[in-house]
Every structure is written in structure tokens, then in C-alpha cells.
Amino acid sequence: MKGVSTQKKSTGYQRVVLKNSAPVLENESTRLSAVEFKQFIITGLKILYGEVGAALTFDVLKYDEDSRTAFLRVPSRGLVKLWSSLTLLGSYQDQACAFRILQVSPFLLALTGNSRELQLD
């Protein structure tokens, strides 16, 4: 074995990805485009943390309009802000709604191999 290097998590490099943070809406027929989805989350950040929260950088890597599920990517220092604002977002256009966080990982690759999604029967 040559050139072995062990590297522990470095906060500077860490990415935290929230997979399938799906808003559950009262009216199932309501549709959100990807842009509306991101704007909705920014609104939630602004309500809870003000302008500083609204300026938090996060990405919507992938969004599925039908299931309203998305892959969100946020630097680790912003995870708690994003997660808490998603938790407290309770309404969308006067309809009750809730976000469900399905998986969180510092590695995007980890989210593509979740054995809990294995459905055999």
C-alpha cells in the first residue's frame, strides 16, 4: 500500500444534502414549479431568520413536480437554519402544508444508495 492518506471531515469542504424534502400539501392538486419551490423555501428562511436567512445559499439540485420531492444542497453551517425553516413552514398560499425530510448526508453519493428504499414485496 502506498500513499495512504486519511482525511477526516473538514467543515470547509462539507456539503449537506437533503434528499426528497417533500412538502405535503392539503390540496394534492396544487402544483409547484422548481422556481416556485425554491422561492417558497427562501420565504420560509426569511420569515424565520430575516434577510440574513433569505441570503442563505442553497441549491435545488433536482426537483420532481409530480411528487414534489427535491434534492437540496446546503453548506453544513446552514443546515440547521434550512432544516428549521422547512419544519416551521406551515402554509403555502393559504393551504396547510408540511415538509418531510427523508434523508440527510454530507455526501450526495450516499443518497443514491439508501437500502431503506429496497421494496421487495
Binding site: K2, V16, L79, S105
Partner: peptide, 24 residues
């Protein structure tokens, strides 16, 4: 500290298949 994100450990290894001591 509420800014704790899930911790993980990453180990990187550069080696060769020909190296008999490789851990792969």
C-alpha cells in the same frame, strides 16, 4: 452548538492492484 451536521469519516487510499499489501 446547533450547527452540527452529520459527521462522517472519509478515508482515501491511492494504491496499485499489483501491490500485495493493498487493502482493497
Amino acid at each position: 452548538d446547533v450547527c452540527e451536521a452529520p459527521h462522517c469519516q472519509l478515508v482515501c487510499e491511492n494504491s496499485s492492484f499489483l501491490d500485495e499489501e493493498n487493502s482493497l
